[in-house]
C-alpha cells in the first residue's frame, strides 16, 4: 500500500500575533474577575465569575488547543465532558435544594 504521507504543515498555523492577543485577553479576564469579586453585585457576582471563567476556557480551547480549526467530532468531544458534568451537578442539586420541601429540613 502506498503511504502518501503529507507533512502536517498543512494544519493551520496560528500567527504569533493571535497568540499574543489571546494571551492579553486571558490576563485581562483574570484582572476583571479579581476586580469584580470586590464589588457587591448580588447574585451577579457568581454569574459574572462563571461567565469570565467560561470565556477564558473557551479562548484557550479555541486558540491554544486549535479547536477553532478542528472538525466537528473534536468539538463534540470537547463539549461532552462538560455537559455530563452539568448533568451530574443538576441531578444532585435537585436533591440538595429540595430536601426540605415536604418534611422540613435544614
Amino acid at each position: 500500500m502506498e503511504h502518501h504521507a503529507e507533512p502536517q504543515g498543512h494544519h493551520h498555523v496560528e500567527s504569533v500575533r493571535t497568540y499574543l492577543l489571546v494571551f492579553g485577553a486571558l490576563l485581562l479576564g483574570t484582572a476583571l474577575t479579581v476586580g469584580a469579586a470586590y464589588i457587591d453585585l448580588g447574585v451577579f457576582n457568581d454569574i459574572l465569575a462563571l461567565v469570565i471563567a467560561i470565556t477564558k476556557a473557551t479562548l484557550i480551547v479555541l486558540f491554544f488547543m486549535h479547536v477553532r480549526h478542528s472538525d466537528r467530532l473534536t468539538k463534540v468531544m470537547v463539549i461532552i465532558g462538560w455537559l455530563w458534568l452539568i448533568m451530574l451537578i443538576l441531578g444532585t442539586m435537585d436533591d440538595i435544594l429540595t430536601r426540605g420541601w415536604i418534611f422540613g429540613g435544614r
Binding site: G91, D94, D95, I96, L97, T98, R99, G100, W101, I102
Partner: peptide
C-alpha cells in the same frame, strides 16, 4: 437517583 429512593434523598428528586 433510583438507587436512593429510601436513602433520605428529597422526594422531588
Amino acid at each position: 437517583g433510583h438507587h436512593m429512593f429510601v436513602s433520605g434523598q428529597s422526594v422531588h428528586a
